[in-house]
């Protein structure tokens, strides 16, 4: 219930006015990602146990897991979209053709695959917010500064997911959700690689925070 209360909800896209066509789509998406990152960092601080981590571990988790956490939101919003579109924001639905034109073919394929998986299990909001926190907590940090605090953070979230599924007598869904984490990581990696490639190829101007977070992945 704490995660539900602190869930920021989705931002609206600011359609870039400096250009048009596929570059406009890309710039709009990157602006949205940058603002989502700002919200994500504020949100992370409210997850129970996150503030007990050392600053070094907080940074490592965010640098490693930010895209996974953001993509849970995209997959969640895209579950009920018409025409197999990806819903990056309420006012930014992208079809396969639009993604392809913007150089995001790989992002489309990967995120669509992830969306289908969650569609298949009819992901619920409670599960989506917990999964988002779990993805962040589970991201790989090496070396870990304070292993005990990190373990407590992970255990707390795992327990919350188990308690939720137990309360609905659907314990089997805990395993199903955890088993989706490898696909989530793979999807995030492909998305990051696609963006890094685009940044090099098209030399798109990126906002500082997004650039910093992509650099941590490069």
């Amino acid at each position: 219930s704490h995660l539900l209360q602190t869930e920021p909800g989705s931002l609206a896209a600011n359609h870039d006015a400096s250009t048009d066509g596929s570059l406009r789509t890309l710039l709009t998406l990157c602006d949205l990602l940058n603002r989502e990152l700002l919200v994500l960092i504020g949100w992370a601080k409210q997850i129970p146990g996150f503030s007990d981590l050392s600053l070094v571990d907080q940074m490592s988790l965010l640098q490693s897991g930010w895209m996974e956490a953001l993509l849970v939101g995209v997959a969640w919003r895209s579950q009920s979209a018409a025409g197999e579109e990806l819903v990056f924001a309420g006012n930014l639905h992208l079809s396969e053709a639009q993604c392809r034109a913007a150089g995001l073919a790989d992002v489309y394929e990967a995120v669509r695959h992830l969306t289908v998986r969650y569609q298949g299990m009819k992901l619920r909001l409670e599960e989506a917010v917990t999964l988002k926190a779990l993805a962040l907590a589970n991201s790989d940090t090496d070396p870990v500064d304070c292993p005990d605090a990190l373990q407590r953070f992970r255990d707390g979230l795992h327990e919350a997911l188990q308690d939720y599924e137990l309360s609905r007598r659907e314990q089997h869904r805990t395993g199903r959700l955890l088993m989706s984490l490898p696909l989530l990581r793979q999807t995030a990696d492909r998305t990051v690689q696609n963006l890094l490639w685009l940044q090099r190829q098209r030399r798109i101007p990126l906002h500082k925070l997004l650039l910093e977070m992509l650099d941590a992945k490069a």
Binding site: G42, Q58, M59, L62, K208, L209, E212, M213, A216
Partner: peptide, 15 residues
């Protein structure tokens, strides 16, 4: 930390 200045600053802000 120098390289990841913005993230560092955002995490240190209390709000």
């Amino acid at each position: 930390k120098e390289k990841h200045k913005i993230l560092h600053q955002l995490l240190q802000n209390s709000t």
